[in-house]
Write a protein that binds this DNA or RNA. Structure first.
Length: 236
DNA sequence: AACTTGAGCAACCGCTGGGAG
DNA sequence: ACTCCCAGCGGTTGCTCAAGT
């Protein structure tokens, strides 16, 4: 190898290193989408670093994976989250916490990112409007006695997008709660209507009650039972 | 019309767990 | 047992756009 070739190799290497560090960020272009789509269609999902390396995209493997899962994958559903999906998210979050990918598994076509974004924007908004912490009793009560009944009402009225049904089996079996407790709860509803006003739920839209990063305390056995009664008592 | 503000969403960052060597 | 690499996950950031002033 003479000095010229060595020099050329050095230059190529330098150029290659520069190209490798020249990673694109930000919004994806249509051209990039097409490239990624074509590559995944041909080679299948997975091995995202290889996708990044061999597809011609100047993106990281992570970026390719995210773009595919959140946007390009054919089964990805986009658009408004239905009332029943909201209810399902609520229930699943109470059981799984912030495990968005696990929650997403129960909502076909919805991505963890979408659910996470949806949850966070609503929680922050509603908690702020109520001027309370998402873990506070006030917040829990407002959700339980105002939002959920309204949501169920809407679902029953058939306003909901029926593309997703809440599977009753997803709700845990609850026992040992007297019907008296329900009456007590119901009597509290009128008092909480005032709080409910702060939800700002638009009757024409889906609205959203929000929630919390730690909803275990909200979605306790009583609440599950309450929801089950409201939603499924006709079927049981 | 110009500017500000806030909501919604797409994408990035950093961490973690699991598998391979 | 240890290290390295990769995929996946959750938190965060920043951009866009619509509504309000």
């Amino acid at each position: 190898m003479d000095v010229y070739e060595t020099g050329f190799n050095f230059m190529s290497e330098t150029l290659q290193n520069e190209q490798e560090t020249d990673i694109r960020k930000g919004q994806w272009t249509e051209e990039e989408d097409s490239l990624l789509q074509a590559y995944v269609t041909l080679h299948g999902e997975g091995h995202w670093n290889s996708v990044a390396r061999f597809s011609g995209l100047k993106r990281t493997g992570k970026s390719c994976r995210l773009r595919w899962l959140n946007y390009l994958r054919p089964e990805t559903r986009r658009g408004n989250i239905s009332l029943e999906e909201q209810l399902l998210i609520l229930e699943l979050h109470s059981r799984l916490g912030n495990r968005w990918s696990k929650i997403a598994q129960h909502l076909p076509g919805r991505t963890d990112n979408e659910i996470k974004n949806y949850w966070r924007t609503r929680v922050q908004k509603q908690a702020k409007m109520l001027e309370c912490d998402v873990n506070s009793q006030k917040f829990r009560d407002a959700m339980r006695y105002d939002y959920i009944p309204r949501l169920l009402e809407k679902i029953r009225a058939g306003n909901a997008n029926d593309s997703v049904r809440v599977d009753p089996s997803l709700l845990p079996e609850i026992s040992g709660i007297s019907s008296d407790s329900l009456e007590t709860q119901a009597s509290s509803v009128s008092n909480l209507r005032n709080i409910g006003g702060a939800w700002g739920i638009d009757e024409q839209s889906n609205g959203w009650f929000g929630g919390g990063d730690s909803m275990e305390s909200v979605w306790n056995e009583e609440n599950i039972w309450f929801l089950r009664q409201q939603l499924y008592d006709d079927d049981v």
